[in-house]
Write a protein that binds this DNA or RNA. Structure first.
Length: 887
RNA sequence: GGGCGGUUAACUCAGUGGUGAGAGUGCCAUCUUCACACGGUGGAAGUCCGCGGUUCAAAUCCGCGACCGCCUACCA
């Protein structure tokens, strides 16, 4: 196999599936429960089991995979814990829809049968997203895959619930909550999405009970007036001073309701009088509690008006709004209607307008938990990266409100609370109770509600590792090393995991939280199905290959920035993959079986390009390592891209071609081949975390490699290979070659024409250096002859360039266009002069000389000297050209 | 109402006090050179949003303003 030549173009499809199964078969993703190696762990943000892989997942998972592969190669015992969450409302919706297609309502089936159907659904479709993650190359420990509804995780949920209840941190109460009339369940505050909406402000007059005028209130939701139980005014409002003890008559309902005084009411909004519907508005609810008002529900759980709505009973709430307006008009109670923009809450699962609703629900008292979570970040036990998110985190944590955790659906963790039918005793227990502990009655009824999905997700970092048991896994891998996630679930998930982790493990759930950007479309819009601007990751993978896609995501992953993804960009990185492929293909034709010759520590035997590339390899290794350690994925990707394409391919391979093409095997040639194999091997290993498939494919063709590249060591800096001198000399040679190429390009000399050039320098050592490496220049600048000498007579009809202390002449009698050369030189001189004058000005500034650090001043001095020198040389040459032109 | 971020080449974006401000794509010219035309070589292209300030020195720090995006919030 190793002797096979690689195909001319890289074909990702077949390669990807082949290696992925290989990795799985070899158990290369598996973490060890116990190990002498240091641990590194990440829990995946569990995608919604009903979900399909979108760009956000792809980005998120790619970053995690890069870190996991990187750490494994560095010798860590890595656990990347995968899984999905049961997504209560979303999953229930999906299955209900399926049933609806057969004309079945879940209530006909009953709870137990319905849940069976959900599990069937999960069995059939639940692993779709997992398979998609695999196509991304995700190296999760799949044998440990978890689901929030698993037995173990459910056990954890009960344990947490019971303990929080016993400590008074979970309570049940009749409060106003956000209600989705379509999903027919309560929602947490976070699950309501607010959107600005063009509505109306209706001014309605409520007549005073004892005759004599009326109070006018303003509302955006006139239908709620049917449940009004007061109107409120500000106690400091002069206009309403004499209303103490007054009552008004609620129009349409003919109910007498009091006027109350409450500071909440803004005097300068509307009329300064506010209608109070405690059962359908959160603020009204608070006011109602303060003033002990009656709370009348007029809207039912299905969004229709109930029996308390009088003649409007049975109407849909929006239909009712129109009817109420019409009725008010008829009674001449509608004073005016204004256009008004206000924000309206929608269900985050189905977009239905949320109805604030009074109902009996379970809540978590979050304040005490939040304090711990705040402290953990303040004290640095958990770092949020980039730290700009700290503020957002603190703001939210500090203003947190109790969390409504009960949901009126069937799919989820049913609340472990039972009521004894005989004595009404409440039993809260981790195990299903057999009988009432108080009266021994057997007639126990479990609370029908289930818990918010995020309640179980909040336990994810430890419930997946076996908690509440004291598992070896927890011992090895908790706290996890880092959590990688998008800011959109910072509150939903990260904050709650922090609270629960601290509460139940006594330790933060993760050392670092890396918040990455959101992937948007090319216009910067959030990708969404309804906007139709999604780019499907699977389409991208099919089109460009997983590696190209992953590299693009990494290259784009600058901290604190949104990612605007476009296909063009992916296309660009596909070319990079192809470039790597071909460079490897080329290299492999010249690498034989490993020579067995170790790379000697003393590099003085090696050629200049060899020493140079080894030194550069050190630098890129250092950069990539430092960048990955700091979650600067884009910098790591950029550094290695630059190195592979512009140093390894453009210069190194071009330099060594003549050596490789030598007919005989010389020591020199062997040494070069050896360096080539070392560098290629290092490149593959540096790149593997980013582009796992193509690197694995090439790795197996590399003579001397054995086993998967996943098990290879990540490159380390080899200090003996750092060679500043080689870098300096190579730069000089490259400068010389670029100088010739530049002249060729500007004066239009075809590459087919071999040139005779003259290189001058007053510095003997420089001349010697060039002499020593003349072959490289002759080859890459396509020269026929190169004369190396001390400054002498200026040649006629030559183009010239100045590179450092070198002056380069390309004499081309008859070929060179004098006018062209004149133009070229003038342009060059003008550019230099502009820059020079800046430097001169800087240096003539007393303050600069006095205050700037010595090395900055010295740098400026030397720049001034080189620039002036260069300008003078070019000027002299220009004069010569002008003289020739005029002769 | 509060908060955060952005504005750098035609496009998409790097770049947190000292360089002649970079990359990829695109554009122009040129080359069927034996790894790669998904390539090579060269080139054109920027008032670093505006104004003011700090500093010897500002794309970078500070202030104000404009425009764009996002998050959060109980003024009906």
């Amino acid at each position: 196999m190793t002797s096979d030549l690689l195909n001319k173009g890289y074909e990702p499809k077949e390669v990807e599936s082949r290696w992925y199964s290989f990795w799985q078969k070899e158990h290369l993703f598996a973490a060890e429960e116990k190990s002498n190696s240091p641990s590194y762990s990440i829990v995946i943000p569990p995608p919604n089991v009903t979900g399909v892989l979108h760009m956000g997942h792809a980005h998120n998972n790619t970053l995690q995979d890069i870190l996991c592969r990187y750490k494994r190669m560095q010798g860590y015992n890595v656990l990347w814990m995968p899984g999905t969450d049961h997504a209560g409302i979303a999953t229930q919706n999906v299955v209900e829809k399926q049933l609806a297609a057969d004309g079945i309502d879940r209530h006909e089936l009953g709870r137990a049968r319905f849940l069976e159907r959900v599990w069937e659904w999960r069995k059939e479709y639940g692993s779709a997203i997992i398979n998609q993650q695999k196509r991304l190359g995700a190296s999760c420990d799949w044998e440990r895959e978890r689901f929030t509804m698993d037995e173990g995780l459910s056990k954890a949920v009960r344990k947490v619930f019971v303990q929080l209840y016993n400590e008074g941190l979970i309570y049940r109460g009749n409060y106003i909550i956000n209600w989705c009339p379509r999903c027919r369940t309560a929602l947490a505050d976070l699950e309501v999405e607010h959107e600005d909406h063009d509505g109306h402000l209706y001014h309605i007059s409520y007549p005073f009970e004892n005759g004599g005028g009326s109070a006018v209130v303003a509302t955006t939701r006139p239908e709620t007036m049917l449940g009004d139980t007061a109107i409120a005014v500000n106690p400091n409002d002069e206009r309403y001073r004499d209303l103490k003890g007054a009552k008004v008559i609620l129009p349409l309902m003919d109910r007498t309701i009091p006027v109350v005084f409450d500071k909440y009411v803004e005097m300068d909004f509307g009329t300064g009088a506010l209608k109070i519907t405690p059962a359908h508005d959160i603020n009204d609810f608070e006011i109602g509690r303060r003033h002990d008002l009656e709370m009348i529900k007029v809207i039912d759980d299905d969004g229709k008006m109930n029996e308390n709505a009088g003649k409007f009973a049975g109407m849909d709430r929006f239909e009712c709004r129109e009817a109420v307006i019409k009725a008010l008009k008829a009674e001449r109670r509608l004073v005016k209607i204004e256009g008004y923009q206000h924000s309206v809450g929608h269900c985050y699962r189905c977009r239905t307008t949320v109805e604030p609703n009074l109902s009996m629900q379970w809540f978590v008292r979050v304040k005490p938990l939040a304090e711990q979570a705040i402290d953990a970040v303040k004290s640095g036990r958990t770092r949020i990266i980039p730290e700009t998110w700290n503020k957002t985190y603190f703001d939210w944590m500090e203003n947190i409100r109790d969390w409504c955790i009960s949901r009126q659906i069937w799919w989820g963790h049913q609340i472990p609370v039972w009521t004894c039918e005989s004595c009404n005793e409440i039993i809260v227990s981790t195990e299903n109770p057999e009988s009432c502990p108080k009266c021994k009655g057997k007639d126990l009824v479990q609370d029908t509600d289930v818990l918010d999905t995020w309640f179980s997700s909040a336990l994810w970092p430890f419930s997946t590792m076996g908690w509440p048991d004291k598992s070896p896994l927890l011992n090895s891998f908790y706290p996890t090393s880092v959590l990688i996630t998008g800011f959109d679930i910072l509150f939903f998930w990260v904050a709650r995991m922090m609270m629960m982790g601290l509460k139940f493990m006594g330790e933060v759930p993760f050392r670092d939280v890396y918040i990455h950007a959101l992937v948007r479309d090319a216009e910067g819009k959030k990708m969404s199905k309804s906007k139709g601007n999604v780019i499907d990751p699977l389409y991208v993978i099919d089109q460009y290959g997983t590696d190209a896609f992953r590299f693009t995501l990494a290259a784009f992953a600058a901290q604190g920035r949104d990612i605007r993804l476009s296909e063009e960009r992916i296309e660009g990185y596909r070319r990079f993959i192809n470039k790597l492929w071909n460079a490897s293909r080329f290299s492999l034709t010249h690498l034989k079986e490993p020579s067995g010759m170790p790379l000697s520590a003393d590099c003085s035997d090696y050629s200049l390009p060899d020493r140079w590339i080894l030194s550069r390899l050190n630098r890129v290794t250092e950069k990539v390592t430092a960048a990955l350690d700091d979650y600067r994925f884009n910098e790591a990707a950029g550094a290695i891209y630059q190195f592979v394409w512009h140093e390894f391919c453009d210069w190194y391979l071009e330099c060594i071609k003549p050596i490789l093409y030598l007919r005989d095997d010389t020591t020199h040639k062997d040494a070069t081949r050896h360096v080539l194999s070392v560098v290629l091997s290092s490149i593959l290993r540096l790149l593997h975390p980013f582009i796992p498939f193509v690197t694995e494919e090439i790795w197996h063709k590399l003579p001397g490699s054995s086993g998967s590249i996943m098990k290879a060591d990540f490159p380390k800096v080899v200090h003996d290979h750092s060679d500043a001198e080689a870098e300096r000399v190579m730069e000089l040679i490259m400068g010389l070659i670029n100088g010739v190429r530049n002249i060729r390009g500007e004066v239009n000399i075809p590459p087919s024409r071999f040139l005779k050039i003259i290189v001058e320098s007053p510095d003997k050592a420089t001349l010697d250096t060039i002499e020593k490496h003349r072959d490289i220049a002759i080859n890459l600048a396509r020269l026929e002859e190169m004369t190396i000498r001390a400054p002498g007579t200026r040649p006629d009809s030559a183009a010239a360039a100045v590179i450092g202390s070198l002056t380069l002449y390309v004499p081309l009698k008859g070929i060179i266009d004098l006018e062209e050369e004149e133009r070229r030189l003038s342009k060059e001189i003008a550019k230099i002069e502009k820059e020079l004058s800046k430097t001169v000005k800087k240096l003539s500034n007393e303050s600069f000389l006095k205050k700037a650090p010595q090395d900055v001043v010295e740098k400026a001095e030397s720049k001034k000297k080189t620039m002036a020198d260069k300008r003078d040389k070019l000027k002299k040459h220009l004069e010569k050209i002008e003289a020739l032109k005029n002769s």
